[in-house]
């Protein structure tokens, strides 16, 4: 397959790749600011309802959150393996690694859904729907409101990320990414890592301390 030529606005292919990378980092900065809104809300309410937050936090099952952290970190590892496969020119292998990563992502969502099921059963729901007997406090209601919207937004990002991984896997399988030029592939996987990194911040504030 011949090396692709740059789009008309770019002088060289290197420039085009560098611009794609730059654009993706800008997009991730924007996404980071989105999540920073959730973290700011958490910080503000935790400062107000410190004791209630700690009490409510210990009602969250550590196992769900921690297993999910493990699953998501492993998926990032297999995504990284897919990038090195692309660099070797092994499109099929890369595709397989991404498929596996998408399965991990799906597993994350399934575990999350099971945990949501438990919360619904307990009445640990947001806002006016909050009926959780074990932490019947205003702060507890705050905590679970933030828990639902933050993890919910994150789960939406995981879902989008799975879509990106599958799209990349499809194109990798058809040999669209060359060992010497594959910024689209790299940037797609970068998005997955970003979703993973966000969870690394969500996990401690809702499960650990």
């Amino acid at each position: 397959m011949p090396a692709p030529s740059p789009a008309e606005q770019f002088a060289t292919l290197e420039r085009q790749g560098a611009t794609l990378r730059f654009g993706m980092w800008l997009f991730l900065t924007s996404e980071l600011l989105l999540f920073s809104g959730f973290f700011a809300l958490y910080g503000a309410y935790r400062a107000t309802y410190s004791a209630d937050f700690q009490a409510a936090l210990h009602h969250n099952t550590l196992a769900y959150g921690s297993v999910n952290t493990y699953v998501l970190l492993t998926s990032s590892f297999t995504v990284a393996l897919s990038v090195s496969a692309i660099r070797r020119g092994a499109g099929k292998a890369a595709s397989a690694w991404l498929g596996l990563s998408a399965l991990f992502g799906l597993a994350f969502l399934v575990i999350k859904a099971a945990e949501y099921g438990v919360h619904i059963h307990e009445g640990a729901l947001p806002g006016h729907w909050y009926r959780f007997r074990e932490a019947p406090t205003l702060g507890g209601a705050r905590f679970y409101t933030l828990y639902w919207i933050t993890t919910g937004a994150h789960a939406l990002h995981v879902t989008g990320g799975i879509g990106v991984l599958l799209w990349l896997a499809w194109h990798a399988r058809r040999g669209r990414y060359l060992p010497e030029y594959h910024p689209t592939f790299e940037m797609g996987t970068l998005y997955w890592h970003f979703v993973d990194v966000m969870w690394i911040f969500i996990w401690p504030i809702f499960y650990l301390t």
Partner: peptide, 23 residues
Amino acid sequence: DHVFHLGVFDPATGGDPVLFQHL
């Protein structure tokens, strides 16, 4: 908040309406 009454900023469930103004 309006549709599902999540109460993120609703003082009735302990929320802080000024926090919305900050954001």
